[in-house]
Amino acid sequence: MQRVNMIMAESPGLITICLLGYLLSAECTVFLDHENANKILNRPKRYNSGKLEEFVQGNLERECMEEKCSFEEAREVFENTERTTEFWKQYVDGDQCESNPCLNGGSCKDDINSYECWCPFGFEGKNCELDVTCNIKNGRCEQFCKNSADNKVVCSCTEGYRLAENQKSCEPAVPFPCGRVSVSQTSKLTRAETVFPDVDYVNSTEAETILDNITQSTQSFNDFTRVVGGEDAKPGQFPWQVVLNGKVDAFCGGSIVNEKWIVTAAHCVETGVKITVVAGEHNIEETEHTEQKRNVIRIIPHHNYNAAINKYNHDIALLELDEPLVLNSYVTPICIADKEYTNIFLKFGSGYVSGWGRVFHKGRSALVLQYLRVPLVDRATCLRSTKFTIYNNMFCAGFHEGGRDSCQGDSGGPHVTEVEGTSFLTGIISWGEECAMKGKYGIYTKVSRYVNWIKEKTKLT
């Protein structure tokens, strides 16, 4: 034993070699072989497995989906700052455009905790909710729209109204504003409101030439003092309507412009014939205590009207009353817009006519005020429907199939267009061939041609 100890002390290297040989010859039971080890760690190889990531292109799944990435790591994937920024906006807080917040056709661009709407022409605001041009839906104005110097929408209202708090709607500024039905039992019968379409306001006024200088022999019209197929109006439903009495009662109609003036057809009036105007009328054979009678003290036909040349060209006249009318729910003026808007309103496509005229061709006159909704007829169809001249200051309205029309005794009465609950004068009943005849239409004086003249002559002093 002493000898062994001496050998170990003198030859430590020998001992180490012996131990190493023993270990190498022993069977290893701690580690699995290569094949079995792979069965336990069965993990798919990654895209760049075996390579240094710093030297390969980034992978979106590896960089940002398996674990949260930084902007720089995302930049490695896209290799483009702009594309990385677009991805980053949604990656950080989701897609803010998912709810489609942009209105009126706006395009949404996502941002971090926010979004941006790219608005089409005519709109602005956070969600493109603000109209900035009158060309689109009248700028959301209830009545009139004008573009300011910086191309912003400025709404306005006709006389007797003021802008509401929203700067879009119009509200009454006087007790009985024009064009409004205020009798409670008839307010439910107000005709369907007309909503502004998209309009090209630059070209809204037709490029028409008034044929002022045409000389033409007097034409022989049949029954051209021209509501057939209409309905009984309720008291106060058309408070701007008046009836004219002269040699015979209810020979023509008219509309209240203001307390002192009536507008009617020029062919209705004769110099030297006494005319009485009755406002607030409903049943011409009954006294309903809503009527107001006034005498006409002055007749002003349009300066281009000449019955000797043509009885229905420039067929418009103004009547001055001896005493002002007292405005109330049964006696209310009709609204008159400017030339541009009167023309736009007419193009809405349908209007209402009213009167006490004959209820059928050569038949009896109506006792109760009649009204009828009539569609506008395109000019080409209008011209083809008659052998008589249709001037540019006239328009056609009615039904091709016949059966409904204005008729004798309705002449001078109103053709009105309702705009968001307020009625505007767009025409004056003038003439036609018979009444409600198939293929024939009622012919009306186009008020847009005469609004400046009306307003100039009827100013209240």
Rank of each mutant, 00 (worst) to 15 (best):
T332V: 14
Y341L: 08
V353P: 02
S187T: 13
N304F: 14
V359G: 14
F196W: 12
E72Q: 10
T271S: 09
D95W: 07
L319D: 01
S169T: 12
S70K: 10
L14Y: 05
E193S: 14
H400A: 15
F221E: 11
D322T: 01
E27R: 05
K446R: 07
S430V: 13
L383S: 14
N452Q: 11
T215P: 07
K126G: 05
S187C: 05
F224S: 14
V331W: 00
T386Q: 09
S11I: 15
F345V: 04
E259S: 06
H34Q: 11
L211F: 11
E418H: 10
D249K: 02
C335K: 00
Q167D: 10
E66I: 05
C141G: 00
D93Q: 15
S423C: 05
V296F: 00
C268T: 01
T417Y: 02
I309D: 09
I17G: 00
V183T: 11
P177N: 01
R449N: 15
N5P: 08
G94K: 09
N38L: 09
E142P: 03
K68Y: 08
G351A: 12
T381V: 14
S423A: 08
S107C: 05
P12G: 14
I136L: 09
N313H: 12
E433A: 13
I297Y: 04
P324K: 06
W240E: 00
E129D: 13
G351N: 08
N310E: 07
N151E: 10
V242W: 01
H282F: 08
Y305M: 02
T264W: 01
E401W: 14
G413F: 04
N80V: 07
F388S: 11
N306K: 10
G253F: 07
S350W: 13
N328Q: 02
G280Y: 02
T445G: 02
V419E: 02
E66C: 03
N100S: 11
C178G: 01
T85F: 06
S156W: 12
S448H: 10
L19R: 02
V331N: 02
K137M: 11
Y115D: 03
L103H: 13
L318S: 01
E142A: 07
C141N: 00
E61T: 15
Q219V: 09
E54C: 04
C157P: 00
S354I: 13
T445D: 01
G58K: 15
V353I: 15
Y441P: 12
V377W: 03
Y391F: 13
T271L: 11
G160A: 02
C407G: 04
D212W: 09
M65A: 12
T426W: 01
E66M: 05
K89L: 06
I429V: 13
H302G: 02
V331S: 03
E159R: 05
V77F: 06
A317C: 06
F360V: 12
E27Q: 14
I297W: 03
L376W: 05
L321C: 02
D93A: 15
I334Y: 00
P333Y: 00
I428E: 01
S99C: 15
S430A: 11
W88N: 15
G50I: 09
A380D: 13
N38W: 08
F395L: 00
L14P: 09
S255L: 04
N127V: 08
N135V: 13
R140C: 06
A279H: 00
L321I: 07
E231K: 09
P197V: 10
V153H: 15
L318Q: 01
V77M: 10
L41N: 15
T158H: 09
I7G: 14
R83G: 14
F176Y: 12
G106R: 02
Q57C: 04
R191Q: 08
R83M: 06
R180N: 01
W88P: 15
N38R: 12
C407D: 03
N36Y: 04
K293N: 07
K438E: 15
G439D: 07
R226Y: 14
D150N: 12
D93L: 11
E288T: 06
G439I: 02
S49K: 07
N328G: 10
C102T: 00
S430C: 05
V447K: 00
N343G: 12
G160M: 02
D200L: 07
N59G: 06
L383V: 06
F196Q: 09
L52S: 15
S187D: 11
F348C: 10
G50Q: 14
P175H: 08
D322A: 05
V92K: 15
E285P: 08
L23P: 01
R162N: 12
T445L: 12
F399Q: 11
H303D: 11
L19T: 04
A436C: 07
G254Q: 00
I454W: 00
I210C: 10
T381K: 08
T133S: 11
V154R: 09
S156C: 04
G432H: 08
A279R: 01
Y391Q: 14
Y341Q: 15
V331H: 00
S204C: 05
C335V: 00
Y312M: 08
N393W: 06
A380V: 08
G349V: 02
R3Y: 08
E66F: 05
G230C: 12
I344Y: 14
V243P: 01
G13A: 12
F424L: 01
T422Q: 03
P235T: 06
N100P: 04
D111Y: 11
K260I: 04
S448D: 14
R373C: 04
K438Q: 14
V278F: 04
K234G: 10
K126D: 12
K311S: 06
K146W: 09
M437W: 13
F121W: 08
K260E: 03
L321A: 00
G160V: 00
R364C: 05
M8V: 08
K137V: 12
D249G: 02
P414S: 08
Y391K: 14
R404Y: 08
Q57P: 11
A164D: 07
G398C: 02
K146F: 10
M437Y: 14
D378W: 03
S182A: 12
Y441D: 00
G125V: 01
W356M: 10
E27T: 08
N245F: 02
N42D: 15
V263F: 01
K39L: 11
D223M: 11
V4Q: 11
F238Q: 04
V419H: 13
V199K: 09
K293D: 03
S385V: 13
G106A: 07
C178E: 00
N38Q: 15
R140V: 11
L130N: 12
P177E: 01
V202Y: 09
T16R: 09
E67D: 14
H361E: 07
A279Q: 00
T461G: 07
T194K: 08
W118S: 13
T218H: 08
K339Y: 14
L103A: 04
N258A: 04
K446Q: 06
Y391A: 14
F348K: 06
W240P: 01
I297V: 09
R226E: 12
G122I: 02
E286H: 09
K387M: 11
T342K: 00
T194V: 12
H302A: 03
F31K: 10
T264G: 02
E27I: 01
